[in-house]
């Protein structure tokens, strides 16, 4: 059994590249998580083929898509900034990302969701089953992403993270991009087919 001297981990742990382990684990998580969305996507095609109701609000669909892509852009700039210790630029871009993400969320939940049933797309039946489950699952991930980024933002404002230690920033922003990638597939499947 371990004695007090060998107990401190530094003595016996070989040195692993923590960052490489973290990144690998995070990508495995993304891979597993992407299957949730794949299942919803396949369900949409299994049940409704390539058909799509004409009533969906195309302007809104395009608008939220552009908003989310832009938020990925600002997120990229935020990560680049902290990697070069440019804190003001980091915080500015992160805040922009959070605002754009929130805007996307409001667009889906407060505009699209109340409007769709008025156009005959209800969550209980028909295309609405796919529409609401896909946007709902995605919005849930957007929400968690916004909360993560908010957490990182508050820490960053208090002076956390620097060019040689910003795994928290990197992971949250990678997650944000992941959520964006999902929408890259969901947007055409829901609005454009």
């Amino acid at each position: 059994m371990s004695t007090a001297t060998t107990h401190t981990s530094a003595v016996v742990h070989p040195e692993y590249d923590r960052l490489a382990l973290n990144r690998f684990g995070l990508w495995l998580f993304f891979f597993s998580e992407s299957l949730i969305f794949l299942i919803l996507l396949l369900t949409r095609f299994y049940l409704f083929g390539t058909s799509r109701p004409e009533e969906l609000n195309q302007t809104l669909g395009l608008a939220i898509t552009v908003i989310l892509l832009l938020s990925s852009f600002t997120a990229y700039r935020a990560e680049t900034a902290i990697a070069h210790d440019d804190r003001p630029q980091f915080l500015r871009n992160l805040l922009a990302t959070i605002l754009l993400g929130t805007l996307f969320l409001l667009g889906v939940v407060l505009v699209e969701w109340p409007e769709a049933p008025r156009l005959g797309i209800v969550p209980q039946e028909g295309f609405g089953i796919a529409f609401f489950s896909m946007t709902g699952m995605h919005a849930f991930h957007v929400l968690s992403g916004v909360l993560l980024l908010l957490m990182v933002y508050l820490n960053g404002r208090r002076g956390a993270y620097s060019s040689d230690s910003y795994w928290g920033v990197e992971a949250s922003i990678k997650y944000w991009h992941f959520v964006d990638v999902v929408w890259v597939f969901f947007y055409p499947a829901l609005y454009l087919l």
Partner: peptide, 21 residues
């Protein structure tokens, strides 16, 4: 819980879909 008819043919769903997944 929410009445979303994924597997209910009367609502445009399909019970076999469940078995596939």
């Amino acid at each position: 819980v929410l009445g979303m008819g994924f597997f209910d043919p009367a609502k445009g769903g399909d019970a076999v879909l469940f078995q596939h997944i």
